[in-house]
């Protein structure tokens, strides 16, 4: 186990090293920090002096060493636009993204497990088939398009009158297929409750929760089909295994078999995939936050690109890289702990 742990940590370290190298080379090759600092009116001699003072003429390994040393001490440079340490800027924007991801994960968890299990238990039923059909379509719809459709439906509202309006049933059907809209689709609202530090939460006000609704639903929509399909196929496999058949033969009630015996083994691969999918989730937050102008890390990153705020881009790269590496390592370790069939290095079965 200790060998496995050390191997995973070594891998995590290697990946972080590569990410820091990439970040360093971006920082070195894009933009000129001296020009950003002093503007146009400073003479060449003074610029060169400043360049020497800032250590920009040092050998590259020395510069990289300084960069890594600063990064390890939580100093990822100053943002050009915010004129603040980049890490502070990122920490300010992090709670919004975290709340969004948390809500989306809750929605995914609440819907994918029952639907996936149902589709595995009754694969031939029309309801299960409908759900699977919808999930195939769901995979093909990009997340920003789902978000736009949701905005059109629930924020702007749809009023169409394909049925005759002069009859009662026509009016009723028209009402039925029209939506009112009115849900907020922009930002996080004004009624945020201050929690601690830079964390203002939207969880404790009706307005905040309403603002969360559409972005969280959009973010969840892209992962939901994936998890439903995964849970269904894993569950189908588990249901055909010997121990489930044996449990059936013993006369254990179907509910107990499904939710106690089968679901446990179904969730194992689901958790692994879930951990790995966090990376995809971060990418999708950039898209969701852009559509809803959600003031999180994704939107901040995109704005940093349009403003050519190189230090902020680099800091985002490092922070996101760290999040990935930590989650992936944790998932690997948990999987190694939970699943005894994973062969750990150093052990010879």
């Amino acid at each position: 186990m200790i060998a496995f742990l050390i191997q995973r940590l070594w891998h995590a370290f290697l990946v972080m090293f590569v990410i820091s190298l990439i970040s360093f080379s971006i920082k070195g090759s894009l933009g000129d920090p001296v020009r950003e600092l002093v503007g146009q009116s400073v003479s060449v001699e003074q610029r060169n002096l400043l360049r020497e003072e800032m250590g920009l003429n040092d050998p590259l390994p020395v510069q990289y060493g300084r960069f890594a040393w600063d990064a390890l001490h939580g100093d990822l440079g100053q943002s050009y636009f915010y004129s603040k340490p980049t890490l502070d800027v990122i920490v300010e924007h992090m709670p919004a993204t975290l709340e969004l991801v948390l809500c989306a994960s809750l929605i995914i968890l609440l819907f994918s497990v029952p639907v996936g299990v149902y589709a595995a238990i009754r694969p031939a039923s029309w309801l299960a088939k409908t759900c699977m059909g919808i999930s195939v379509v769901g995979i093909s719809v990009p997340v920003f398009l789902t978000a736009i459709v949701l905005i059109q439906l629930f924020s702007i509202g749809v009023h169409i009158t394909p049925f005759p309006t002069d009859t009662d049933w026509g009016t009723w059907l028209n009402e039925l297929i029209s939506t009112d809209g009115g849900l907020p689709s922009f930002g996080r609202g004004n009624e945020l409750v201050h929690l601690f530090g830079t964390w203002d939460t939207g969880f404790f006000s009706v307005d905040g929760l309403l603002h969360l609704l559409l972005p969280a639903a959009s973010l969840a929509s892209i992962m939901l089909p994936l998890f439903i399909r995964l849970i269904r196929s894993e569950m189908l496999e588990v249901l055909q295994s010997d121990y489930v058949r044996f449990a059936r033969a013993k006369g254990i009630s179907p509910g107990r078999i499904y939710f106690l015996h089968a679901l446990k083994n179904t969730m194992l691969p689901v958790i692994t995939v879930g951990g790995v999918q966090i990376g995809t989730m971060v990418a999708y937050t950039i898209l969701t936050e852009t559509v809803f102008q959600w003031p999180g890390m994704g939107l901040m990153f995109l704005e940093a690109i349009t403003r050519s705020d190189i230090p902020l881009i680099v800091a985002y790269l490092m922070v996101v890289g760290l999040i990935f590496v930590v989650t992936n390592t944790l998932v690997d370790l948990v999987y190694g702990l939970v699943n005894p069939t994973v062969k750990l290095t150093g052990q010879h079965a």
Binding site: G279, T280, A283, I286, V320, G321
Partner: peptide, 11 residues
């Protein structure tokens, strides 16, 4: 792959 392909493409 652990970064997800879309994330790499965006970066």
């Amino acid at each position: 792959l652990s970064f997800s392909t879309l994330m790499v493409a965006i970066l």
